[in-house]
């Protein structure tokens, strides 16, 4: 039986085929799907912020790209080295025209995600990032196909 697993803001979940992982309403947040095609096991993370280093107290691991991604990878691979892993990412929009470039959290989130994935040598196979639209990700863990939606309308397939 296939389950649909919801991931809230500042959270991640890991599961196996044929489940679907879903996260709704990504604005400047970024959704990171990481997958092992051999075991068909994968995770989806919904991060809010690029890095945790300027925060001192109450650090929620799942909220930050630099902490959430490594933790999720360990959960997907059970801590073993795995060179099969691949990634697809979406989100990181700049929703408002008044946002100054220096404070573009969406873009900074995307850059931080890219850096962490590069560090772990996980290739980004496809992406739908930036722009000024919100996105919902529906990740099929059987095929690692990702449907990108705005509301109920599909706008892209990764």
């Amino acid at each position: 039986m296939s389950k649909e697993i919801r991931i809230g803001i500042a959270d991640y979940k890991v599961s196996n085929s044929p489940d679907k992982l879903i996260t709704l309403g990504l604005g400047s947040c970024v959704g990171i799907a990481i997958y092992d095609p051999a075991t068909k096991r994968g995770g989806l993370s919904h991060i809010m912020l690029p890095d945790s280093s300027s925060f001192i107290s109450d650090i929620k691991v799942e909220k930050f790209a630099d902490l959430a991604i490594p933790t999720m990878i360990r959960e997907i691979t059970s801590g073993r080295f795995n060179k099969n892993l691949i990634a697809k990412i979406a989100g990181g929009a700049s929703m408002f025209s008044f946002s100054s470039n220096a404070n573009n959290i969406g873009q900074r989130n995307v850059e931080a995600v890219e850096a962490v994935l590069k560090e772990y040598r996980i290739p980004i196979l496809s992406r739908d990032t930036g722009g000024n639209i919100g996105r919902t990700m529906v990740v099929d863990l059987n095929s690692f196909t990702i449907s990108i939606k705005n509301g109920s309308k599909e706008i892209n397939i990764l």
């Binding site: 990504l26 604005g27 400047s28 959290i105 996105r135």
Partner: peptide, 24 residues
């Protein structure tokens, strides 16, 4: 004023982040 038509969650979370509220 400016108008955007988008998902409630994408708008609301981005507004709070824009105003430097980084809490859950």
């Amino acid at each position: 004023p400016f108008k955007i038509t988008d998902m409630f969650g994408a708008v609301l979370s981005s507004v709070y982040m824009e105003t430097e509220y980084f809490d859950e």
